[in-house]
Write a protein that binds this DNA or RNA. Structure first.
Length: 656
DNA sequence: CTAGGGTTAG
C-alpha cells in the first residue's frame, strides 16, 4: 500500500499546476488515502482554489471509505467554518458518510437536516432504508420524493426494485419493471440485476430467467443474481448448470460471490466432489476468503456429511460470525452428532453468538432435532428478553421445537400469539399437529390457513398428508393428494408420495400403494419402496414383500433398510431360515445396520447410548431401571410391539 | 464528480 502510494505520489504530480493537484487529491481520496490527501491539501492552502467544494466532498468520501466517522465530523466542522456546507456534493457526501458509518436513525437525522435535496440525496436515503431492511420506509420516502417533484433515476429505481423483492411484492415489482422499460433504462446492468433479484425473491425464477435472456449486456452480477434466483427457489441443479455455462462464456468471469453461490448449490445437492473442487479452486486462484464464503463452505461440508472438513475450515478461520457458528451447529445436528451439537451450543452461548433472530432460529432447530427441551426453553426465554417477541423466524422455530418435544399446547400458544403469520408459521403448526398424532387438528388448520388467504405450498402438503397418515384419515389424505396437483398446481414430491404410501399401507391397501409408487416420478427411489416394505411388515404380506425387496435390491443393493425390513417380515412369519439367509446377504455384501443412538443431558454432562451398548459406567443401574419401567408399563396395560425385534438375539435388555 | 445491483443459516 505504502509503496504504491509513494510511486503514485512522486511520479504523477506536477506542483506547478494547481488543477492537477486538485485532481490528484480527488484521485487519492477515491483510493481512501485520507492522510496523504490532507497533506497535499496543505500545500494547496496558499492558493485560492483550496476552498473548492469538490475537494472537501472527496475528503468526506475518503472518510466514508475508511469508515471514519470521527474524521468525517471534524472535516464537516471545518467545512462549516469555510462556509461551503450548502454545496450539494458536500451534502450528499456527508449523507453517504452516515449511510456507511451510522445507524439508520442518525442517517435520517442528517437527511432531514440537509436543506437542499436533489435526486442523489433522496436516492441515498431510500437505499439506506432498503439496506437497513426497512422497505416500507423506503417507499414512504419515495412518495414524498414524488410529491416534491423529483424524478427518479436508474439508481433510485434499482433500490426500489430491490425493496419490492425484499417485501415479496411481485405486483409492485412488475410496475417498476414497466417503468424502467418506459424510461429506457433496460440496458443498464444494475437495473437488470436488480430485476433478476426481485423476481427471484418473489419466487418467479422463470421471470428472472426471461429478463436475463432478453438482455444483451450482462455482467458478472447479472449472472450471479440469476444463479441466486435459482438457489433461492431450490433449483440448485439449474444454478450449477448456469455456473458451468458462465465459466465457458467469454467476457464474463465469476467472482467470489459467484463461487459462494455455486458452493451453496453443491451443498444443497450433496455434491461433495464438486463442492471440494470449488473449494480447491478458491484456494488455488487465491480468492479472498471472507466470512460469508467460508461459512457457506462449512455449510456445504456439513450438508454433505463431511464434518471433519467443516470443523477444519471453522478452526482455521480468524474471524467468525453468528452464521459461521450456526452453519457448524446445523452440520452436527443434520448428521446426528447430538453431543457435539450440544457442546457447541454451550460454547456459542458462552461467546454470545447466535443472538440474532436467524441465530436463535438455528439454535432452536438444533434443540428440535435433539429434543432438547430445556435448552429450547432457555432460548425461548432469551428471545423474550431481547426481541420484541415479534419475529416469525424465531416464532416458527419455537413452534417446531415445542412440537418436536411433544409440547403441543405450548406450540399452539406461540402460534396463537404470532402476530404476522406467514406460510412458514402455518406450516410449522400444521406439521406440529401432524407429528403429535393430531391429524384432525392439522387438517382443520390447513382449511383455516386457506380461508385466511394464504396458499399452501410444498411443505404444507407434507404436514397435512403426514397428519392424515398418523391419524388414519384415509379419505382426507386421498382428497389432499389429489387436490395438490389439480387445485393448487404443486407437483407431488418424494415426501408427499412417501406420506401417501404410508397412509395406504397403514390402511392395508398395499396394492394401491404399490401402484402409486409405480405411477410416480420416484419409482426408482429405494427409500420410497422402503415405506411400502415397512407397511408390508405390519400386514405381513409375504408375496408383496418379496417383490418389493427384489425391486429395492435392484435399485440399490447396498441399502441397509431393505435387508432389515425383509428379515423383519420373515421373522413375523416365523421363517427363521429365510431370516438367516437375509442376514448372511448383509454380511457378504458388507452392509451394516446403523445402530440406533440417543443421548440425554444430566447436570451439564451429555450421556450417549448406542443400541446394544454396555459401555456406560452405570449400566447396571440403568438397565435395572429400564426393566423396572418395563414392568410398570405392562402393569398399566402397555403391550410392546415385538415383531421387529423378536429375531434379534443380541437384544440389549436380555443381555443386561 | 456524489448515489446503485449479486453471496451464507430456514
Amino acid at each position: 500500500m505504502r509503496s504504491l502510494f509513494h510511486r503514485h505520489y512522486t511520479t504523477s504530480i506536477n506542483t506547478s499546476d494547481p488543477n492537477s493537484l486538485v485532481l490528484e487529491i480527488i484521485d487519492l481520496c477515491k483510493s481512501g488515502f485520507l492522510s496523504q490527501s490532507l497533506k497535499l491539501l496543505r500545500s494547496l492552502n496558499p492558493l485560492k482554489i483550496a476552498k473548492k467544494p469538490i475537494i472537501y466532498a472527496s475528503l468526506l468520501q475518503a472518510c466514508a471509505k475508511n469508515l471514519s466517522l470521527r474524521q468525517g465530523n471534524a472535516l464537516h466542522s471545518h467545512i462549516i467554518k469555510l462556509g461551503i456546507d450548502s454545496d450539494r456534493y458536500i451534502s450528499n457526501s456527508l449523507l453517504a458518510l452516515h449511510f456507511k458509518c451510522s445507524e439508520i436513525s442518525e442517517t435520517r437525522r442528517v437527511f432531514d437536516f440537509l436543506a437542499l435535496k436533489d435526486v442523489v440525496t433522496w436516492t441515498s436515503m431510500i437505499s439506506s432504508y432498503v439496506r437497513a431492511n426497512e422497505p416500507k420506509r423506503a417507499f414512504e420516502l419515495y412518495s414524498e420524493m414524488e410529491e416534491q417533484g423529483v424524478e427518479p433515476n436508474e439508481y433510485t429505481l434499482s433500490s426500489l426494485i430491490k425493496a419490492c423483492g425484499e417485501m415479496g411484492n411481485l405486483e409492485r415489482g412488475k410496475l417498476f419493471h414497466e417503468m424502467v422499460s418506459e424510461k429506457g433504462f433496460e440496458s443498464n446492468c444494475v437495473i437488470t440485476s436488480a430485476l433478476i433479484d426481485m423476481y427471484g425473491k418473489c419466487s418467479s425464477f422463470e421471470e428472472a430467467r426471461k429478463v436475463f435472456d432478453e438482455r444483451e449486456q450482462r455482467d458478472t452480477i447479472c449472472w450471479t443474481s440469476l444463479m441466486a434466483s435459482y438457489t433461492q427457489n431450490n433449483q440448485f441443479k439449474e444454478a450449477l448448470e448456469l455456473f458451468m455455462l458462465m465459466q465457458r462464456s467469454p467476457n464474463v468471469k465469476p467472482d467470489g460471490f459467484t463461487f459462494g453461490t455455486a458452493i451453496a448449490a453443491c451443498g444443497n445437492l450433496g455434491l461433495i466432489k464438486q463442492g471440494k473442487q470449488i473449494h480447491s479452486k478458491f484456494i488455488i486462484i487465491g480468492y479472498e476468503m471472507n466470512v460469508v464464503i467460508l461459512s457457506s463452505i462449512i455449510d456445504m461440508y456439513g450438508k454433505c456429511g463431511f464434518m471433519d472438513f467443516a470443523h477444519k475450515v471453522f478452526d482455521d478461520m480468524n474471524f467468525r460470525n453468528s452464521v459461521t457458528w450456526c452453519a457448524l451447529l446445523n452440520g452436527y445436528c443434520q448428521n446426528g452428532y447430538g453431543e457435539e451439537a450440544l457442546a457447541l451450543f454451550r460454547r456459542m452461548q458462552n461467546e454470545g453468538m447466535g443472538g440474532d433472530s436467524y441465530g436463535l432460529g438455528t439454535v432452536l432447530r438444533a434443540c428440535s432435532s435433539l429434543s432438547a427441551l430445556r435448552q429450547g426453553k432457555e432460548v425461548h426465554a432469551r428471545f423474550l428478553r431481547i426481541e420484541g417477541c415479534d419475529n416469525v423466524v424465531v416464532e416458527s422455530a419455537l413452534i417446531d421445537m415445542y412440537s418436536e418435544c411433544g409440547c403441543i399446547r405450548e406450540a399452539k400458544l406461540i402460534f396463537d400469539e404470532t402476530k404476522h403469520k406467514n406460510i412458514v408459521v402455518w406450516n410449522a403448526m400444521i406439521c406440529g399437529f401432524a407429528q403429535n398424532g393430531k391429524g384432525k387438528e392439522a387438517l382443520g388448520l390447513f382449511d383455516e390457513m386457506i380461508n385466511s388467504g394464504i396458499s399452501p405450498d410444498y411443505v404444507t402438503f407434507i404436514g397435512a398428508l403426514f397428519g392424515c397418515g398418523h391419524s388414519g384419515l384415509l379419505e382426507g389424505g386421498r382428497h389432499l393428494f389429489h387436490s395438490m396437483t389439480e387445485k393448487h398446481g404443486i407437483d407431488h414430491g418424494l415426501e408427499h408420495c412417501a406420506c401417501m404410501v404410508d397412509l395406504l399401507g397403514r390402511a392395508g391397501l398395499l396394492e394401491e400403494a404399490e401402484d402409486l409408487i409405480e405411477r410416480s416420478n420416484f419409482k426408482d427411489d429405494a427409500s420410497l419402496w422402503a415405506v411400502l416394505l415397512g407397511a408390508c411388515t405390519s400386514y405381513s404380506n409375504l408375496r408383496i414383500s418379496e417383490r418389493v425387496a427384489k425391486r429395492m435390491i435392484e435399485l440399490d443393493p447396498k441399502y441397509h433398510l431393505t435387508y432389515v425390513l425383509l428379515s423383519n417380515v420373515y421373522a413375523a412369519f416365523g421363517r427363521w431360515g429365510e431370516v438367516s439367509v437375509v442376514r448372511n446377504w448383509m454380511k457378504e455384501r458388507g452392509i451394516k445396520k446403523m445402530p440406533g443412538r440417543s443421548w440425554i443431558e444430566v447436570k451439564n454432562k451429555v450421556h450417549s447410548f448406542l443400541a446394544y451398548d454396555d459401555s456406560h459406567p452405570l449400566k447396571d443401574t440403568i438397565y435395572t431401571e429400564i426393566r423396572r419401567l418395563d414392568v410398570e408399563m405392562r402393569e398399566v396395560g402397555y403391550v410392546p410391539n415385538m415383531t421387529h425385534v423378536i429375531h434379534s438375539e443380541e437384544w440389549c435388555w436380555k443381555k443386561g
